[in-house]
């Protein structure tokens, strides 16, 4: 049986761990708030962009843009995997990576693009060390998104890749995040028509006047749509990561508390046993000496 001192040491180290997880929990809670504000601030842009796209899709007779046509036959499909840079958030990163590997198995030989250090490392382990990679936690996520969009669309237009699927974590609620795979390119026109937004506010179709032609404005809007879709995936990953970390750290703190309670009881038992044993020895010794 463990001695009182062993138990006391273990409890002490557990208390330290608990303090760390508690601090990380508070940091995560503060960072979620910031990530959610960033998401909220991006929403007006998203809504207006969706509305403009809907008006445009109603106005163009035929869509002739390379982003909306199937990619070059024979070129490999691509996966853009978005994870966090760091761990300590339960299965957050590994779930996203597993979902991406699932998609990769269905597609066969795929080209990888990654945002987030965990994604980069996972793809390295898959034997594709030269895949383009970005970190999630850059000073400007918007710049990162622009960079990624530029690289992907260049590769798509040049025929290096035939399609792009984004795999990233979706924030379902504070308690749950789910990896999601979405087709990014070619852009499906149905997705643009059904883009979320206030349907009543849409302009009567056919009456909108365009500077240049609607096709020209659309050719300008599609790259922005791509950029912004990636940007919102980065923002959502950020928010979902801190939500996952908050949950993981809450659980860790609770577990540490449970362990500390158990060990404290064990320690008290051990101490009591030692005292009882000592007493018994004293009494036995006294009896042996024949003390009255």
């Amino acid at each position: 049986m463990a001695t009182v001192r062993d138990l006391r040491d273990r409890i002490k180290s557990l208390k330290n761990t608990q303090q760390i997880t508690k601090a990380m929990k508070q940091v995560a809670a503060a960072k979620i708030r910031r990530a959610e504000i960033a998401q909220k601030q991006a929403r007006p842009y998203a809504d207006t962009l969706a509305e403009m796209l809907r008006d445009l899709m109603g106005a163009v007779s035929s869509v002739d843009h390379s982003f909306m046509k199937p990619g070059k036959a024979g070129a490999p499909p691509a996966i853009l995997l978005v994870t966090a840079d760091k761990g300590l958030a339960g299965a957050f990163n590994s779930n996203a990576i597993r979902a991406a590997e699932q998609v990769a198995r269905e597609r066969g030989n795929v080209a990888w693009y990654t945002v987030g250090n965990k994604a980069r490392n996972a793809v390295r382990r898959l034997g594709k060390p030269d895949s383009p990679a970005w970190v999630l936690n850059a000073p400007s996520k918007l710049d990162t998104a622009r960079d990624v969009a530029r690289r992907i669309s260049d590769d798509f237009v040049n025929g290096t890749i035939s399609e792009v699927t984004v795999v990233s974590q979706k924030l379902v609620s504070m308690m749950s995040q789910r990896p999601e795979a979405r087709k990014l390119i070619p852009i499906e026109s149905a997705a643009l028509r059904e883009a979320p937004g206030d349907a009543e506010r849409r302009a009567p179709s056919g009456s909108v006047e365009f500077a240049g032609s609607p096709e020209f404005v659309l050719s300008r809007l599609l790259p922005k749509y791509l950029e912004f879709t990636i940007y919102s995936a980065l923002l959502e990953t950020d928010a979902a990561f801190f939500a996952a970390q908050l949950l993981a750290m809450t659980n860790a703190t609770d577990n540490a508390k449970k362990l500390i309670d158990e060990l404290t009881i064990q320690m008290n038992n051990a101490r009591q046993a030692a005292i009882t044993k000592e007493l018994l020895e004293i009494v036995a010794g006294a009896e042996a000496l024949g003390v009255e």
Partner: peptide, 19 residues
């Protein structure tokens, strides 16, 4: 500044979309 040149918009403008 639109792709077609500078454009000034006043209230009650007809529906218009420009890059």
């Amino acid at each position: 500044v639109t792709t077609e040149g500078e454009e000034g918009i006043l209230p009650k403008h007809a529906p218009f979309l420009a890059a």
